[in-house]
C-alpha cells in the first residue's frame, strides 16, 4: 500500500514537470518561428547546424540550390551520340529505346573525335520508368548521355515522361532506310562479283546491320586482333573504337 502511494505522488510530480517542460519546448519553437530558414544548399557550412526557425522552403517560390552534378533527368546530346546501344542494354528497367539505322554516307565525328556511323532513328528515354541508377551514363563511350540537375519535370500525363532525343524527321528516316537498302543490294551484288577478293572495311558492316548481337561481336573481333590481354572488352569500348579508327 505504501509503495503504491509513493508511486501515486511520484506520478503527479513527474507528470507536471514533464508537461511543463514540453510546453516550454514548444513555446521556444513558436517564438523562433518568425525566423525563416534561408534557402541554403548542402555545401554551406552550417547546413546541419540549423535548428531554429522555420524549416520549410516555399518550393515554387524559392528553391534550395541544386548541386551542378545533380543526377536527376537524363539528357542525351544527340550530336555526340554514336548510337552504340550500350545504355539500352545496361539499363536495368529498360527505359531507353533505340532504333539505329546504319549510315551510308559519312556522318562526321563526335566532339571527342569518335566517328559516327549509325543514325539514331529513335532515341527515347522513358523517365517514368527510370530508376536513376546512372549505369547508362557510366557505360556511354562518348559521354553524350548525362544526368542533368533538372529535377522538376512532373507532368499531368505520364506519357509525357517519354523524352525523344532523336533529331531525324520521319521523312529523313525513310530516306536513310531506302539509302541503306539500296546500298545493301549493291553490296550484295559486289560480294557476289568479288567473292574471292575481300574488300577491307566492308566485312563488319553487314554484321552491324543486325543489331545488337552482331554489333558486340563486331566490337569483340577487332579487340582480339589488337590485344589479347584485355579481359573485359565489353566495358572498355572507347580504345577499341579508336583502334578501329586507326585502321
Amino acid at each position: 500500500m505504501k509503495k503504491k502511494q509513493g508511486k501515486y505522488w511520484k506520478n503527479i510530480r513527474i507528470a507536471s514537470s514533464t508537461l511543463f517542460q514540453g510546453l516550454i519546448q514548444t513555446s521556444k519553437h513558436f517564438r523562433k518561428a518568425f525566423k525563416q530558414r534561408n534557402a541554403i544548399g548542402v555545401e554551406e557550412e552550417n547546413y546541419f547546424h540549423r535548428s531554429d526557425g522555420l524549416q520549410t522552403v516555399l518550393y515554387p517560390h524559392e528553391l534550395l540550390p541544386i548541386p551542378d552534378n545533380g543526377r536527376y533527368r537524363l539528357h542525351n546530346e544527340m550530336d555526340d551520340c554514336i548510337v552504340c546501344d550500350k545504355c539500352a542494354k545496361i539499363c536495368p528497367v529498360d527505359c531507353i529505346d533505340i532504333e539505329p539505322i546504319r549510315a551510308v554516307e559519312d556522318l562526321g565525328k563526335t566532339s571527342d573525335g569518335t566517328p559516327k556511323r549509325i543514325h539514331g532513328a529513335k532515341f527515347d528515354i522513358d523517365m517514368s520508368k527510370c530508376c536513376f541508377c546512372g549505369l547508362c551514363t557510366t557505360v556511354c563511350p562518348t559521354e553524350c548521355l548525362t544526368m542533368t540537375n533538372e529535377f522538376n519535370f512532373s507532368e499531368f500525363d505520364v506519357t509525357k515522361h517519354n523524352y525523344e532525343f532523336a533529331t531525324l524527321t520521319p521523312h529523313e528516316i525513310t530516306e536513310k532506310l531506302e539509302a541503306l537498302e539500296s546500298f545493301n543490294k549493291e553490296k550484295e551484288k559486289n560480294e557476289l562479283k568479288n567473292k574471292e577478293s575481300k574488300v577491307e572495311g566492308t566485312q563488319p558492316r553487314p554484321k552491324i546491320k543486325m543489331k545488337p548481337v552482331i554489333k558486340d561481336s563486331a566490337i569483340e573481333e577487332p579487340d582480339k586482333n589488337v590485344s589479347g590481354n584485355i579481359k573485359k572488352p565489353k566495358f572498355r569500348p572507347r580504345p577499341i573504337i579508336k583502334k578501329k579508327k586507326e585502321d
Binding site: F30, G53, T56
Partner: peptide, 13 residues
C-alpha cells in the same frame, strides 16, 4: 498556423 509554427513549418501560405 500555431501548429505549423510549433513544428517549424509555415502552415497555409
Amino acid at each position: 498556423k500555431i501548429s505549423a509554427f510549433i513544428q517549424d513549418r509555415y502552415g497555409p501560405m
